[in-house]
């Protein structure tokens, strides 16, 4: 036995919460996206841990899919960041408040 499942879960949740903290606290759009990446990775870790716990390969397969989707998502979001930077000249999340009121 390498480690109890609960440890993996706690480790993974700490990672997840750090990612969440990054999303909540940072105003730079890039940093927000990085926070999202961290959260996705934490989930990946949980999945691999579960796959090791149950001795099924499905968890690892799921991580594959996760990574594929993450790359797709990141490419589009970064393209949008580029567009927003061109539009407003800033990538501060507080600058985009035209939906206010």
């Amino acid at each position: 036995m390498i480690v109890p499942m609960s440890h993996i879960l706690i480790f993974s949740s700490i990672l997840f919460l750090m990612g969440l903290a990054c999303v909540l606290a940072r105003r730079n759009l890039i940093m927000i996206l990085i926070g999202v990446e961290i959260m996705l990775n934490a989930v990946g870790l949980t999945l691999v841990g579960a796959s090791a716990l149950w001795h099924q390969v499905d968890g690892q397969i799921f991580v594959i899919f996760l990574m594929a989707m993450t790359s797709a998502e990141v490419s589009i979001s970064l393209a949008m960041v580029v567009y927003l930077q061109r539009r407003k000249g800033s990538i501060n999340a507080n600058a985009f408040d035209e939906m206010r009121g």
């Binding site: 036995m1 390498i2 109890p4 499942m5 750090m18 969440l20 903290a21 841990g49 001795h55």
Partner: peptide, 30 residues
């Protein structure tokens, strides 16, 4: 606020995990 939130969430998660008997199982490399 973010720290507070994160600590609260962490506390909740740890309590939930600790309370689950299935989570105490050991993990072996697969």
């Amino acid at each position: 606020p973010v720290l507070v939130l994160s600590l609260v969430l962490l506390g909740c998660t740890i309590l939930l995990i600790a309370g689950d008997p299935g989570a105490a199982q050991g993990v072996t490399s697969y």
